[in-house]
Structure formats: structure tokens, C-alpha cells
């Protein structure tokens, strides 16, 4: 159905890439490597699900990297300096980020501003706020952190499915459910098709905009908490530029950057492709890790070219004979 062909292509790229890597480094095809790949990219996967909703609705959210950074600093300070119980700190930071996203959505709708500008402002705001809290890395030593880090499901073949990987998978599933099976999801596609038409057809465009950006920021907050589990620290410079990796993953996953088409599963595959490239470079050992960016760039370009091709094909005009005088 909708968005399937691009998703299929993404899946083929992932499988082919994995096969190629496995030929060169047979060890890659192990549950251990796959488990690590999921763990390493857990935060990226979570934030990319939110970005998928935003982009399908015809918008963009540049603030997510900064929200992740802010979250890690806030959580670290709350637990280590202010003595707040970790769970309370989590709830507080999620409420903060959700409110932040809702505010951006409201500004976009009420003042009819381009999401690019509003979320760019949000990006500076959140990053600035995290620097205000602390400019140095704050290590987190709370017991819950070691508990969560130690928790993992054993996979056959020695791999570990960590807690944060599980969180990511649950959110991917939940996101897919929300996007593809609910009225909310249908409205997200409707907004991406045309805001004015969706409004004429009865969709509450304003409420939807607020909810979509709220969801994106909320997921960025969860990604921030996951990131703090991953690094056991809060640092105001963490996740710089992650918004761009996220957008890349979404687009490689077959979501149309202009909105209206895309899928959660595609985004998940897009995240895995980026993780796979990173893993390959780690295995190779001689390549600079910046090759990840170069490979991502090439893939991104290829996918956008492909989408444009598909769109152009769909818009091919139908020739009609001139109406002769009857």
C-alpha cells in the first residue's frame, strides 16, 4: 500500500548491505553484533519515530538533538546535585519536553510560521538552556543506572538485548500502531497531503499540529533518558547534530520529505542502515569514523533522487485530445 515501494527498497539495501558486510567480516552475522547495533542506536531510533510523524505531517523538527542534550543534563543534575529520585526526574523532564514541543506546535499553527524556523529557534533555546544548567559533563552514579545497564535478555549465540534496546523496539511498535492504525495516524497523513484540504475535510489542524510536535519532543525526551543510560552521564554537548542524522534515517526509510507518505518501519530500517555502516567501520578498524557521514550522505542523496523520480512518474500528465467542434 502507501509508501511500500520505498520501504521495500530500504529493506533490500539493508539486507544487501548486511550480506556484503557478513561476507567480508563473518562475525558481523551474530546476535552479539546485532544486539549491540540495537543498543548503540536505541536513542536514534526513538527520536526518529517522532521525526517520522513530523515529516509525514509536512513539517520538520530541528530541536530534537538539543532536547536530548538538555534532557541528559537535566536528569544528571536532578539526580546527582539536587537529590531528586530518578523516576521523579524522568517524569519531570518528560513533562518539560512535551510542553516544549506543544509550545512549538502552537506557535507554528497560531502564527502560521514555517516549522523550520520555529524548531530552529527551539533548537537554540534548548541547547542554550542546557549550557545554562551546566557546561561540563556530569557523571551519573545512581544505582538505577547500573541496574538498567546490567539488565539484558540473553539471545541465542551470546548476544544481549539490553533494556534500552527493548525500550526502542517497544516504541517502534507503538509508533507503527499509532501511525498506521489510528485516526490520529490517518490525520497525520492528511496534514501532509494538504493542510487546507484536511481542514476542509474536518480535521482539527491546530490540535493535530500541537500533538505532533508534542509527540516528537516527548520522544526526544525519552531518547535523552535512554542516552543518559547509554553514557551514564549528562553533558550539554551531547547529541549535537543528531536532528540531521534523524532526518537522514527517516528519509532513507522512504518517508517523503515533503510529507504525506512514509512509514515507521521504514524509519526503523533507516536507523539500522546507519548503524550497520558504523559497525562496518568499527570492524574495518582503519577507516575514519567520518566515513559513516559520507556513506550516509551518499545514501541520502540516492534516496531523495529516487523519490523525486517516483514522484515525477506519478505526476506524468495524461495526454488528452483537443476538443473539436462538435
Amino acid at each position: 500500500m502507501r509508501g511500500l515501494p520505498p520501504v521495500l527498497i530500504t529493506a533490500i539495501v539493508l539486507v544487501a548491505g548486511f550480506a556484503l558486510c557478513a561476507v567480508q567480516f563473518p562475525n558481523i552475522a551474530s546476535t552479539r553484533v546485532v544486539g549491540n547495533l540495537l543498543t548503540d542506536n536505541a536513542f536514534l531510533g526513538i527520536v526518529a519515530i517522532g521525526m517520522t510523524f513530523v515529516i509525514i505531517s509536512g513539517g520538520i523538527d530541528l530541536s530534537v538533538g538539543s532536547v536530548i542534550g538538555f534532557t541528559t543534563v537535566f536528569v544528571a543534575l536532578a539526580i546527582e546535585r539536587w537529590g531528586v529520585p530518578p523516576l521523579v526526574a524522568f517524569v519531570a523532564v518528560l513533562a518539560l519536553s512535551a510542553a516544549f514541543g506543544a509550545a512549538m506546535g502552537a506557535v507554528i499553527h497560531v502564527f502560521d510560521l514555517p516549522p523550520f524556523i520555529v524548531t530552529l529557534a527551539g533548537m537554540f533555546l534548548a541547547r542554550g538552556a542546557s549550557f545554562l544548567l551546566s557546561t561540563e559533563s556530569v557523571p551519573i552514579t545512581a544505582p538505577i543506572y547500573s541496574t538498567v545497564s546490567d539488565f539484558a535478555l540473553r539471545l541465542p549465540g551470546g548476544g544481549r538485548l539490553t533494556a534500552i534496546a527493548i525500550i526502542m523496539l517497544v516504541i517502534v511498535l507503538g509508533g507503527a500502531l499509532l501511525l498506521h492504525l489510528t485516526r490520529f495516524g490517518a490525520n497525520v497523513y492528511a496534514l501532509g497531503g494538504s493542510r487546507s484540504t484536511a481542514s476542509l475535510m474536518g480535521v482539527a489542524v491546530g490540535k493535530m499540529t500541537v500533538k505532533i510536535y508534542m509527540l516528537s519532543s516527548l520522544l526526544a525526551g525519552i531518547a535523552g533518558i535512554v542516552f543518559s543510560f547509554y553514557t551514564s552521564a549528562g553533558y550539554s554537548l551531547s547529541a549535537v547534530g543528531v536532528e540531521l542524522d534523524t532526518i537522514a534515517a527517516v528519509v532513507i526509510g522512504g518517508t517523503l520529505l515533503t510529507g504525506g507518505q512514509g512509514s515507521v518501519i521504514g524509519t526503523f530500517l533507516g536507523v539500522l542502515i546507519q548503524g550497520l555502516i558504523q559497525t562496518y567501520i568499527n570492524f574495518d578498524g582503519t577507516l575514519s569514523s567520518w566515513w559513516t557521514k559520507i556513506a550516509t550522505g551518499v545514501l541520502l542523496f540516492a534516496f531523495i533522487a529516487l523519490q523525486q523520480g517516483l514522484v515525477a512518474l506519478a505526476r506524468r500528465p495524461v495526454a488528452r485530445s483537443a476538443g473539436a467542434a462538435s
Binding site: A198, M201, G202
Partner: peptide, 17 residues
């Protein structure tokens, strides 16, 4: 004034599925 990116069914029942 409908949404070409949605399915025919979704267009018919948008917001009242």
C-alpha cells in the same frame, strides 16, 4: 479538494472512520 496521498477509503471516511 481531497487528499491524493490517502487511500480512497480514508478520503471517504477521514475523521469519521
Amino acid at each position: 479538494n481531497l487528499l491524493p496521498n490517502l487511500s480512497v477509503a480514508q478520503n471517504l471516511f477521514l475523521d469519521r472512520q
